[in-house]
Design a protein around this nucleic acid. Structure first.
Lengths: 154, 154
DNA sequence: CTAAAACCTCGCGCGCGCTTCAGGTCAAGC
DNA sequence: GCTTGACCTGAAGCGCGCGCGAGGTTTTAG
């Protein structure tokens, strides 16, 4: 575990204090390197990612943590521009909690209603699954279906 | 309730058996008339929407029902092309339940994992909401916050 | 020192799901 | 019959969230 060359699959990243390469950061945050650079350009990454003397990005834990917040907001459907707005608020420091709260509460309401809709539609999907299972087992027994086209239900 | 002219907000649609205009169908399915036409062009609407002699669409209950299935699939993130595939299967009639089942089960798995992800991210959002609420009530009392920037958590 | 691999910026491209526009046609009230 | 508004088709346009490629620089392995 000391100086052994790491397998090709997991490249160097030798010194933890030196930070991670963009490729490794991508792996750990679950987005592509393109997306990482895009998020930075788009003003989402307010942690000010380190650079080497030559200009290569070096990611630290705080960066990854914040980027993960961003990806979770994205995953819940928050548009980039809203995440940027939120990032600006956070970056501006204490004193704007009211606006942050409003933003997050609005988004929470959004997510909650999305969840409800998803649950509702999941019901339809599961009914379909059940129907097709029934038809299949019935069909394998006696090949008897009622013609469905008349019902227009699929 | 008999022959009274309906209010402007809800236009004619006098004879129920004659079917509904595209505008009314849009209202009832919750999508725009553009989207209705687009779905038809895209091959989603397998119910064969009626037309007047002049070429205007007339929607019946079966159409609305099927379109609602489509919108629910869309609402759960199924891409148009997959809905089209499903529509083709349904339209082909009985005998392909196996493929329909596979399609729906795959989509169900998708929706379930989406739900889980949404729930997870909702946790983050609610923690943020709580934090900002606390900060606000604490702040209104004594204007004392710990500087957050060091925590990189937002 | 050198070669290969990883990274850089800039900017164009793309897939998706509609939306809008142009230029007409149709339907319904009066 | 005439006007007004809803509707038609076909095609182009758009906003979003990345993906990709060119052309060049930096790192790292050997």
């Amino acid at each position: 575990m000391a100086d052994v060359t790491p397998p090709v699959a997991e490249p160097r990243e030798s010194d933890p204090r030196a930070g991670l390469s963009i490729a490794e950061a991508a792996r750990r945050t679950g987005v592509s390197v393109h997306t990482l650079r895009y998020y930075e350009r788009a003003g989402l990454v307010i942690t000010g990612v380190d650079r080497t003397a030559g200009g290569w990005r070096r990611y630290h834990q705080a960066d990854l943590k914040w980027i993960t917040v961003c990806t979770k907001l994205r995953a819940t459907g928050m548009p980039i521009r809203d995440i940027r707005r939120y990032a600006q608020l956070v970056s501006a420091g204490p004193g704007n909690e009211k606006e942050r709260l409003a933003l997050m509460e609005a988004h929470r309401a959004d997510v909650v209603s999305k969840l409800a809709e998803l649950q509702d539609c999941l019901g339809l999907i599961e009914r379909k699954v059940d129907i097709y299972r029934e038809r299949l087992s019935a069909g394998q027994a006696d090949h008897l279906w009622t013609p469905e086209r008349l019902s227009a239900a699929g």
